[in-house]
């Protein structure tokens, strides 16, 4: 677009020209406007930069034969090395899906209880606890997982080790819950009382009202809550590293040890020589993660948006 067109006063439109001439934005306003503009562009710039450096450091290994997205073996230090991403991808996918399947029903259920059933004092206590839960660093949760959860899973299922995909999923579900609970509760709270009364006046019970009116009305918010929770699950590294068993093999059940993309990067980065194939392979994993995040976010955005308009 040509900016001079915008600025030149339209001919023959007297009043508009005068308006333009007399109104000058105050300085503070222009400064602020410039500031927020800059901030917005910086966000985009960062994303582009991350992508750029990931691509540069990966040195195009993604396109070479040693690096196989569907390869079955991740053996970075064997001779010759094999960089098959499938086991890590499967590990990430397995814990993410399992954790989501645990966290979403529990989280939404807890939010319904807090928002619709709990008496005021109980509600306050619950809300504070949920917020506190959200503030616990994931490493600490990882410790708990190692000394409490893993032995429990081990003895419960009679396994050789408790460091399994299931343990990791439970930990991750625990970490995703606070986000899901508090955002879902906000979404339910923002449903106007008029809707609840409308349903009650038609002879609906409390549960019927929740199921058929409140949940549909709060759907965009609940979806957003779910996606943010899933986001935390995908991105979480430390706790998973500590408790998932760290075995880069394609799992056949949740009771086997696994390893995720993020855990692999975190665990192996320190041992690589800069510029080596292994180093480049880890950055390539970063690219894969980047792609996954992009896809998940796009889907989430579509879902949330569709919910809003319909």
């Amino acid at each position: 677009m040509n900016p001079s067109v915008k600025r030149s006063p339209p001919r023959g439109k007297g009043p508009r020209v005068t308006l333009r001439a007399t109104y000058r934005k105050p300085w503070s306003e222009r400064l602020l406007e410039g500031g927020v503009h800059l901030a917005a562009w910086l966000c985009i710039l960062f994303v582009v930069l991350i992508l750029f450096f990931l691509a540069r450091e990966s040195g195009g290994l993604v396109f070479k034969d040693v690096f196989q997205v569907v390869g079955r073996y991740w053996r970075p230090i064997s001779e010759p090395p094999q960089f098959g991403v499938l086991p890590l991808l499967a590990g990430s996918l397995l814990v993410t899906l399992t954790a989501t399947a645990i966290a979403v029903p529990l989280g939404v259920g807890a939010a319904i209880y807090i928002g619709e059933f709990a008496p005021p004092q109980v509600r306050e206590i619950l809300k504070v606890s949920v917020e506190f839960l959200a503030a616990i660093p994931s490493v600490v949760i990882g410790f708990l997982g190692m000394i409490v959860l893993a032995p429990l899973v081990k003895s419960l299922f009679n396994l050789p080790t408790g460091l399994t995909a299931l343990s990791a999923s439970l930990m991750l579900a625990w970490m995703a819950m606070p986000t899901i609970v508090s955002l879902t509760e906000d979404a339910l709270r923002s449903v106007p009382d008029t809707l609840r009364h409308g349903a009650y006046a038609l002879g609906a019970t409390r549960w019927q009202t929740i199921r058929r009116v409140l949940l549909p009305a709060a759907k965009p918010g609940i979806l957003a809550a779910t996606m943010l929770g899933v986001g935390r699950v995908i991105g979480e590294t430390m706790a998973v590293l500590m408790i998932s068993g760290n075995a880069a093999r394609i799992p056949h059940s949740v009771l086997e040890p696994i390893r995720t993309l993020t855990a692999t990067i975190a665990a192996e980065m320190g041992e690589t020589v800069q510029g080596s194939d292994h180093y480049q392979a880890l950055f390539s994993l970063g690219l894969v993660l980047f792609g996954i995040t992009l896809v998940v976010n796009t889907i989430a955005d579509r879902l949330v948006h569709r919910g809003e308009t319909s």
């Binding site: 106007p192 008029t194 809707l195 009364h197 409308g198 349903a199 009650y200 006046a201 038609l202 002879g203 609906a204 019970t205 058929r212 009116v213 549909p216 009305a217």
Partner: peptide
């Protein structure tokens, strides 16, 4: 619930359910 079915109520602001 049965009373509310037998005696319907309409409010000042129309509240269509999100259906």
């Amino acid at each position: 619930q049965s009373v509310r079915r037998r005696v319907g109520m309409i409010f000042a602001l129309p509240v269509a359910l999100p259906l």
